[in-house]
Design a protein around this nucleic acid. Structure first.
Length: 298
DNA sequence: TTACCAATCCTGCCACTAGG
DNA sequence: CCTAGTGGCAGGATTGGTAA
């Protein structure tokens, strides 16, 4: 039934669950928590079920249940405890684990079921801030440590994007505020991480602002055509991997010269934006350290 | 191919800390 | 005190890559 290759090294489990490999070995020795298969040469490798179980164990452990107690429970009992705690405590941690499993297994159904049960009790924005953003953050790290493949990351981000688009679609009937500024959302060249920006697009529209989403990898020159169409532009961009750190200052000053005429402004968000020193920026350029802060200051 | 090297994993041990 | 978790180290094996 499950066609996904599912062999995980102990390092993979450490990365995915946050439990140190050392501790996993100790748990196996002391409590027989997991019984990994071994290669001919005695190296541990784990099944998807083991990963599932470890994620559940680490969830219970973080909620104060002693590992020695957990060890006495069967897999079913463990799963039942997780469901019970997840239903009365913060749903976030558990949901993140479930989304992770959905990603590793390329399980669309699990993704949608998890999302649907979250959306029953909370707003889309709430889910995005408290579940999707921390999840994407973790997944970025998993990718760096090659615990997961780019395909996994794509799978996850495409479904998150789909949810954002769905919510934007529902807003189309809102009449934009008259005389409001125009927000132009774009990513610089070689930058393709557009989820944050897409969510900003959703928030801007839900607040009735006029926004234009241009998406990934837009050369600066292309933006200058927009100056003929709109006044009072606020550009919004998001630096995750591009531009390179040494070139950010140059990029911003060129942007300022070329596009920030009259009262146009630029907001920069994202991981790379954190390296920018605000003192050296012209008045027309601002840095925001999170999507939430950016939205709240509108 | 072979020889070597660095990284990683294995087990087992001891020591430290935090909390009951 | 005991328990649980973490960290470090030793000593050996495996692995993948690279130079001879």
């Amino acid at each position: 039934m499950n066609m996904i290759k599912s062999n995980f090294s102990i390092k993979d489990l450490e990365n995915l669950s946050g439990i140190k490999a050392h501790t996993i070995r100790i748990w196996e020795k002391r409590y027989n928590l997991l019984s990994p298969n071994r290669t001919d040469t005695n190296i541990r490798y784990y099944s998807l079920e083991s990963l599932q179980k470890l994620l559940n164990i680490s969830f219970l452990n973080k909620h104060g249940i002693k590992v020695s107690k957990i060890a006495k429970l069967s897999n079913q009992e463990i799963a039942a405890h997780v469901r019970e705690i997840a239903s009365r405590e913060k749903l976030e941690d558990h949901a993140i684990n479930t989304f992770k499993m959905a990603m590793i297994n390329f399980d669309q159904i699990l993704f949608y079921n998890t999302y649907n049960s979250l959306i029953e009790t909370r707003s889309f924005s709430n889910i995005f801030y408290n579940v999707f953003l921390p999840l994407l953050n973790e997944v970025g790290l998993l990718w760096q440590t090659s615990t997961i493949t780019p395909a996994h990351e794509h799978f996850l981000s495409i479904h998150i994007k789909q949810k954002i688009l769905l919510n934007i679609e529902r807003l189309q009937l809102l009449e934009p505020k008259p005389n409001s500024r125009t927000y132009i959302l774009f990513l610089p060249e070689n930058e393709i991480h557009d989820i944050g920006l897409l969510f900003i697009n959703y928030k801007l529209r839900s607040k009735g602002y006029h926004s234009i989403f241009l998406g990934e990898s837009i050369p600066m020159n292309n933006l200058s055509y927009l100056l003929d169409f709109f006044n009072h532009i606020t550009f919004v961009t998001y630096f995750t991997v591009a531009p390179e750190e040494e070139k950010i200052a140059e990029y911003l000053s060129e942007f300022n010269k070329l596009l920030l005429k009259q009262d146009n402004k630029l907001f920069v968000l994202g991981q790379k934006a954190k390296t920018i020193l605000p003192e050296h920026l012209p008045k027309s350029i601002s840095v925001s350290n999170s999507i939430k802060n950016f939205i709240n200051q509108l």
